[in-house]
Amino acid sequence: MKKILVIKHDKIGDFVLTWPAFYLLKKAMPDAIIDVFVAKVITPFAEACPYIDNAIADSGDDAAIAEYIAKQHYDAVIVAHSEMRMYKILKNIDIPYKLAPKHNWYQYLYKHRASTDYKKGEGCWRGSCMLIEYFLSHHGYPIPSLPKQYWDMSEYKPKWQQYYGQQADEKLIFIHPGTGGSSGSVAEVDLAKMISHINRLTKSDCHFVLTYNGDELVLAQNIQALLADQPIRVSLAKPLDSLRDFAESLVAADMFIAGSTGPLHIAGLHNVPTVGFYAGRRSAPHIRWQTLTESSKRLTFTPPIGKKTGRNMSLIDFDQVSQEIADFLNKSS
């Protein structure tokens, strides 16, 4: 096996949670070329992944995509994000080994299939790992152990601390007011209240950085306005030119707080302490969509489970949230 294509054209958070699988593949097969097919918006970020050699952007032109893939002469394709469209693109391409997960009826159109049903209590990132583990075992490669951190950008940390205006030994606490599709939104007033309490309860000086994307700028500005009359260091994150730069810059954070959203998962790549707000459901999204940060550095909060309560983030006790966050920060000082 000299050249392998992985299909993962999905959202940012889902792509991030595939990094452990990419790590396993590259660690086990360091001499193989690992390419990945991704959504166009993710391409620059995918190119930054140390376990990927080349990123192929989804142009939307299926015929052109199929022609390009055929010319690369891949030895194997691993369909980590399986849908009928991808089968149609790949079906007439001569790739010796094609592997897909065991879900959806069209799994039976692939010769090789692997279970991605991870155990209860595991994060969904395990599913992609199971696919890669099947591939490696099928070809006689040992399964590597996973690292504690997937993206080591520590040499750039001082640069990004300076970029975000860190002063002396203050802690940079990043807060993203937006949310992903699996969670409800935390109200600006609750986030402002939480920031105020954390600032009061934490022994270290704190600088709160509000990150945002697009329309989320209004949310960040509202939070800043709610705190304007308090002696708290709150600033809006300075815009960066690319997703790749933003992702790298999160190495500066001493903590990242958000709903279940792409930026929260990116912070997890740096093993930054994460605080996530998740919907209260029996499917336990706070476990399923856990970040890649070590378990001892993850805090999660949910409203009561139920159809009427599960997405109502105002039912979370933000006084308790603030205390737990402050306790964590004080212990790590």
Score class of each variant (00 low, 15 high):
N222Q: 15
R233C: 10
D245H: 04
L227R: 01
A237S: 10
N222I: 12
D229I: 04
D254M: 11
D229H: 07
D215A: 15
G259F: 03
F256A: 14
A237Y: 02
R233E: 07
H265V: 06
Q224K: 14
H265A: 10
I266S: 08
L236W: 02
L236Q: 03
F256Y: 14
D241E: 13
G262F: 11
D254A: 15
T261A: 13
P231A: 07
L264Q: 11
F256I: 13
S242G: 06
Q224F: 02
L264T: 13
D254G: 14
Q230E: 12
A237K: 02
D241G: 12
L264V: 12
N222Y: 08
H265L: 07
A267K: 10
L226S: 00
E248D: 07
D241R: 10
P239R: 02
Y212F: 14
D229F: 01
D229E: 12
F246Y: 06
L236H: 03
A253C: 09
S242Q: 08
D245M: 04
L217T: 09
L240Q: 04
D215M: 15
L226R: 00
A237G: 06
H265N: 08
N213Y: 11
L236P: 05
L226N: 00
G214Y: 07
A220S: 11
A225W: 01
A247R: 06
N222G: 06
I223P: 00
A237C: 08
F256S: 15
A228M: 03
A253L: 10
L264Y: 06
P239W: 04
D229S: 09
I266N: 10
Y212G: 02
S242P: 01
R244S: 13
L236C: 04
G262Y: 05
R244K: 13
L243M: 11
I266A: 11
I232C: 10
L226I: 02
A225K: 09
Y212I: 03
A267I: 08
L236A: 02
L217K: 15
L219A: 15
A237D: 00
I266C: 11
S260L: 13
L240G: 02
Q230G: 03
Q221E: 14
I223Q: 00
Q230P: 03
A247K: 03
A225S: 12
L236T: 06
L264H: 13
E248H: 08
R233F: 01
F246D: 00
P231N: 03
D254P: 06
L243T: 05
Q221D: 10
V251H: 06
L236M: 07
I257F: 00
E216H: 03
E248K: 09
L243S: 05
D229Y: 01
D229W: 01
V251L: 05
L243F: 09
V218E: 12
N222R: 15
Y212E: 02
N222F: 04
T261R: 01
L227P: 05
K238M: 06
A258S: 15
A225N: 06
I232D: 09
L217H: 14
V234R: 00
A247Q: 05
L217Q: 15
F246A: 05
P263D: 10
I266E: 07
S260F: 10
A237E: 03
A258P: 12
S242M: 04
H265T: 06
D254E: 11
V218M: 11
V218W: 02
